[in-house]
């Protein structure tokens, strides 16, 4: 936990989620404080993505309680909108709007959500595009950029909504090896500014460097929840041991 943090930003209690017969989340309890940086890892199909997608209402949970920044997700449109106002998300496939320029991708939500006027949205977008080091690409279309650049635009786009919490769903998994670093560097600098982050990733060096806690999931359950140093040195569960062996052996 970061020093001095006491405000809870995410609270999950006994959360269950099914896709038809398949249970994706199983009695998940999780408390995250403001300013905390969490890395979620685990084998494929263990519920990592589902976990963070439940946090901004992209997936609805079926039982248990989730509250984000003080708003409880009750499955109604209003609470979902309220939560999404505070949560930014970055996707594996970037999901930029291909017909809008980089700048328009960043200003669309702030302008249309009534958060700010066009000039303020423009200023904000340029601030964050500088922050992710691609202000010179502002007038290009996403398709004209490399994967790494697109993902940095996606980060800037999410930041333009001034979120209190950022969710990353395998942000580097679709990138060429050479582009991974530029995206991770951006995320590290965001972390250094104290942003609350939950990141699903297999980049364990990144996890060691920035995470306060590592959450290891298996079959929809949170199996481990400890600081990176402990997780990597002495994982408690056999499943996490196996996972680390396999991921570190190649």
């Amino acid at each position: 936990m970061p020093k001095g943090a006491k405000n809870i930003i995410v609270k999950m209690e006994k959360v269950n989620k099914w896709f038809d017969d398949f249970q994706a989340l199983c009695d998940v309890d999780l408390t995250i404080f403001e300013g905390e940086r969490i890395v979620v890892c685990g084998p494929s199909g263990s519920g990592k993505s589902t976990l963070i997608r439940c946090l901004n209402g992209l997936e609805a949970h079926q039982s248990g309680d989730i509250s984000v920044h003080g708003t409880e997700l009750r499955g109604d449109a209003q609470s979902v909108r309220q939560v999404r106002d505070n949560v930014g998300m970055v996707f594996q496939q970037f999901n930029l709007f291909p017909h809008l320029t980089v700048l328009e991708n960043c200003t669309l939500a702030p302008i249309n959500n009534g958060k700010m006027d066009a000039q303020a949205a423009y200023d904000k977008a340029m601030t964050y595009l500088k922050r992710v080091q691609i202000p010179e690409q502002a007038d290009k279309l996403p398709g004209q950029l490399s994967g790494g650049q697109q993902q940095r635009v996606a980060i800037a786009r999410a930041l333009c909504m001034e979120p209190k919490l950022m969710l990353f769903d395998e942000p580097t998994s679709a990138l060429d090896p050479e582009m991974i670093k530029e995206v991770l560097d951006t995320m590290v600098s965001l972390a250094e500014d104290g942003m609350s982050m939950i990141c699903v990733t297999h980049e364990l060096n990144f996890a060691k460097r920035v995470a306060h806690r590592i959450i290891f999931m298996d079959k929809g359950r949170i199996v481990e929840d400890q600081p990176p140093a402990d997780f990597f040195k002495k994982p408690k569960s056999p499943r996490a041991k196996l996972f680390l062996e396999q991921i570190l052996s190649h």
Partner: peptide, 27 residues
């Protein structure tokens, strides 16, 4: 993915339709 990104950005249905779905469909 386009609809999920739009939802995560909290865009209204009207904005999603007018600014995302319609132009992408016409293209």
């Amino acid at each position: 993915g386009q609809l999920e990104a739009a939802a995560a950005l909290n865009l209204s249905n009207k904005t999603i339709f007018n600014s995302i779905i319609i132009p992408q469909t016409l293209i």
